[in-house]
Write a protein that binds this DNA or RNA. Structure first.
Lengths: 230, 230
DNA sequence: GAATTTTTTCAGAAATGCCTGAAGGGAAAC
DNA sequence: GTTTCCCTTCAGGCATTTCTGAAAAAATTC
């Protein structure tokens, strides 16, 4: 099964850690964010298959964060987690765009069952709907669409595969050997400059119109993809 | 919006009637079944967009009925409704294939919110209804009739299966591997261009006489079906 | 600053992918 | 047995992508 990523936005550190541990034991990968602002940043940087959201959060509360998430992503399931169990609380949770509302204290097995309901419905088949993100660049692996700063970019198959390789290994230095193995599936052949040519193609489409370059050359070593120097 | 049908399987007549009335006031059409056996029959006869299922039922209990439904229909959302609120009860509800578990007594607005969560997520292509739609194109899966802009279109068996595959996965990019597996049930054979030929046939029948094309080629990746670019 | 190495760019050739019409073969209908 | 319809393969032509080789530019070394 593909890696399923869950974000826990919860300011009670102890609870957050227990949840993370239990989710990981259940086979998911889990990140934690301890306030609403960090949560928002992490959602912007990564793509999660599901978000567990406490309501009573520092900086940005759960209701507002939920609404913000929904402005850009209508798909990701959001499970609200909170001590407030009145009908009014629950209903406003749903109004802000949550999919479920679990009242503390709860049984972890119930939470897990509810998580599975939404994951099962999210993508019956492959859970390949992941998006790769870097700064203002976003790549949807399912539709092969690439957007930078809100503008759609058309890539050819090879360009797409190269960008995918870069984004899956962002902030890391990639040697030519590594790239040619991933994108062309062949051993490195020193007589070709195909990588350089395709890096050039990508730069024209991805970086040319932007001041903040995402594809960088490390002279003598290879390339890396990042929004800052490494 | 198309008519949304909800089935209430509940043996407490008063509660069933109140629910039915409230759901109808909320714009749904609702049927009631007062025991598990009647519920099963009604599900066999009609197609519902959502099922509300009591657990403590005469003849067939809610757990068993839920499991039976799931053998034939993995899509329809099932909300369990019951007086038992222990974690164990809830978890077994989910294990039998329920999507949600609401403990009596409950606030109707909460139930309604939960209903809406599942209806919102039910994809147009995947709904329990027997029709697939995209823009002015409509395909009836029972009668295999296809209509675009009011005009009937005759399709052969393979064409129909291909269109069905497209419509069930509308707005998504489909690879040749995926299409040939769904329509021809075989592994991809790079030596055949049967997909191209049938896409061509479909285009002639579906798109040729219309400016708004529904079948699109993504060069190097595959095809997708949508009323807009993806 | 000259020499060397590495990277970038470009034009055009080669390869691949896509579309279309035509035609053969097989199954079902008559 | 014949006809009709459907499914499939094949071949061509066209469009796009991929790759090559060489030259220009940039970075590094001496």
């Amino acid at each position: 099964m593909a890696d399923i990523r869950i974000l826990i936005v919860e300011d009670e550190l102890r609870l957050a850690e227990i949840l993370k541990k239990q989710l990981e034991e259940s086979g998911f990968s889990a990140d934690t964010a301890n306030d609403g602002y960090i949560g928002k940043q992490m959602i912007g940087k990564n793509s999660y298959n599901l978000i567990i959201l406490d309501i009573n959060l520092p900086l940005i509360n759960g209701y507002d964060l939920c609404r913000e998430i929904r402005t850009t992503n209508k798909e990701v399931p959001i499970i609200m987690l909170t001590a407030f169990g009145t009908p009014e609380n629950k209903i406003s949770g749903f109004e802000y765009g949550a999919d479920d509302y679990v009242v503390k204290p709860f049984d972890f097995r119930e939470l897990l069952a509810r998580i599975n309901v939404f994951l099962r419905r999210a993508e019956p088949g492959k859970s390949d709907s992941d998006k790769l993100k870097l700064a203002d660049l976003e790549m949807d692996l399912k539709t092969k669409t690439v957007i930078r700063a809100g503008k759609k970019i058309d890539l050819t198959a090879k360009e797409s595969l190269l960008l995918e390789t870069f984004l899956k290994n962002q902030h890391k230095l990639l040697t030519r050997e590594f790239i040619i193995e991933k994108v062309w599936g062949i051993d490195f052949d020193p007589s070709t400059n195909i990588i350089d040519v395709y890096v050039n193609y990508l730069r024209k489409k991805i970086d040319r119109d932007h001041d903040a370059k995402l594809i960088h050359t490390k002279f003598g070593f290879g390339f890396y993809c990042s929004d800052k120097e490494i």
